[in-house]
Design a protein around this nucleic acid. Sequence first.
DNA 1: GACCTGCTGCGGCGTG
Length: 816
Amino acid sequence: MNKFSETPGYSIIADWMAASGNKPFDFQAKCWQQYAQGYSGLVIAPTGFGKTFSVFLALIIDYLNHPGNYQPGLKLLWITPLRSLSKDLARAMATAIAEIGLDWEVGVRNGDTPVNERQRQTRNMPEVLIVTPETLHLLFAQKNNSAFFKSLQCLAVDEWHELLGSKRGVLTELAVNRLLSVAPNLRVWGISATIGNIEQAVDVLLPYSRLKRTVIYSKAKKKIDIISIMPDEIEELPWAGHLGTRLAYKVLPIIDKSRTTLIFTNTRSQSEMWYQTLLDLSPDLAGQIAIHHGSVDMELRTWIEDMLQTGQLKAVIATSSLDLGVDFKPVDTVIQIGSPKGVARFLQRAGRSGHSPFETSVIYFLPTHSLELIEAAALKEAAKKQVVEDRLPMLLTFDVLVQYLVTLAVGEGFRENELFEQVRQTYAFSEMEPQEWQWCLNFITHGGSSLDAYEEFHKVVVEDGLYKVTSRRIAMLHRMNIGVIVSDAMLKVKFMTGGYIGMIEEYFIAKLNPGDAFVLAGRVLEFVMIKDMHVLVRSSKSKKALTPSWLGGRLPLSSNLSRFLRQKYTEASHPASGEKELRLLKPLFDRQEKTSHIPKENELLVEMIDTREGYHLFIYPFEGRYIHEIISALVAYRISRIMPISFSIAMNDYGFELLSDQPIPVTEENIGDILSSANLMNDIFLSVNATEMARRKFRDIAVISGLVLQKYHNQYKNNKSLQASSGIIFKVFEEYDNQNLLLRQAYNEVFIHQMEEPRLVAGFERINKGKIILKRATAFTPLSFPIKVDSLRQSISSESLETRITRMQQEAKRSK
DNA sequence: GACCTGCTGCGGCGTG
């Protein structure tokens, strides 16, 4: 192999890159070399370093070197998780191709592609096609689709880290699997940001021994400046809370001195409140700031993105909706309000500023309550050490597999044994048993054992060993429901005069009367009426307006960040000289130490506090609220075994509270047993309502597997009936078909993703190896106070021992 | 001493 810079084609590319102001990085050159030798692989580099072009150009050079290896038709298939990335990418690729002097066409195909363009592509595929995982599966549902892919040379999976941890990742795994079987010369390249489990990320994308595999890292590092926004006095920060608007006045000068600022909040309603707060503080920002979140109308969001791109906005307040996507060159400053809950997310957001490789990204962290200052210190430490979270792949997601099987049956059909061998090569289904495969086949042909009587679940028929969908109606309905994203019930908000503003939850609007005012996308709106599933509004001048809340997912504290957090608590008693965050918190720490104790890394703090309200037990594992939900139920259960007692339970990311009106029988002697890891999973199963948790998980599974159709042609089906019908099916399966794979999957998802069993077990191991410190106090401590505040908002009552025992007996009976 | 919250992402058909 000659030196890469001597290969034909290289100079064309190098010239082209130089002309566009880019110089090739080492990792790009390496990527080109490996590609030329026939490798597949994963490219890892920070954003802004031209990862995308490393793969694209590798293909182009290979073509320039060996045009004879290529057939007419589709050569590069590009998978991106976001539609919004496609257009700009296509334009950039088309420009490069034109300048290099090729007559290739670059096409985009996704939900936005007009019908005539689709038809044109179907007749004559472009050389390069940019798709989403969903659209690719839609292509698999077309007749003779393998003809599209026969000539394919390269499959690129962009932003692989984004897809990896979700069912969209499984869709992608299956797509890679199928394309490898259709396109003999295929090379598969993933493109990813840094994540904790890179090795696994390669295994998931490329579990194929017949491929030559490599991983290419960029040596280039992105420089990041993290600056905490400090109150002048610690008293200025509340002990509890999440909004952080008290420090808003400190944000104004930052916006002022920056060209363009992105302000990230954790929730949609928080972004609405910050927008109003900033305008109240500085009315001349009107027209120069905007809101961007998932419930703002798409058109409005696109407009805001355009304004960002051209530098016409001073600041945008956003949620994760701007984590990814096109890069906004004018952005030079990022502000994170409140805990980002994970290191990766924080660094990702930091990277939205100072986008070019040689600029430094600047991110400000604004704490919303005093203890969050410790998180600032933890984030700095984690960023310095570059310890980012893992993205764990999903395994044995039978709902996705079943959907895929029907997709293939709608398309060209499949043969049983051949496909079994093939699918088992994917990472997600490598552990699938033959009887599980048989179950899936039976499910798509007969609806499984409990739904056999219903024709609508006999989707696939077998003709001469070929599994096919013959009904046009079923094929149509299936195509309309391909994908793994299940949405919530929302209503569109629209001006009386026309023009969409965004989306709102049904339950929020139900609380409003005509004439009431609320804010959305930063506008004050007057509710007029609901018509045809639309909320009609007009502009309002009202000073008092409600801020909507949306029922979104919660971002739990990552175990990665909680580790650094515990470390910082250990350092808290002797703040290192450089850490101003910890120094400022000194009075608070002193108070905590005086009234109770500051937990060190190897300690677990338990506080027992008696107040007028009752008897409180606080425990601080620092494992995030999902885990605390489980541990608190477990602890409540184990205490109630000592003595019948019922609790109200509250929690946050740092710890949880059990509150009772009778003295809690916890002592130095028995606390070890209460927190013991002996019989852990068994006790957990008895203490939490796993059935209810599984029922909620089953809602998505029912939709993805096609048991419940999210969309009908000419028929509106809202999500309430969706919930109802998936609930009924769940009940039927529980009673008559408890070996149902989809039902089992719901429970698995609860244990692995909600309870995070591995993290839970690790957490208990840590507790059991360390020291439990039990302290009694007469007033709330700085650590307990935020949880107390949380419990005022909502209290979850634990079941009485009696009802629990009844349920345990019933469950024991059923499992016999 | 003091608060009130929960992210993102995708996708199509009819008929003559």
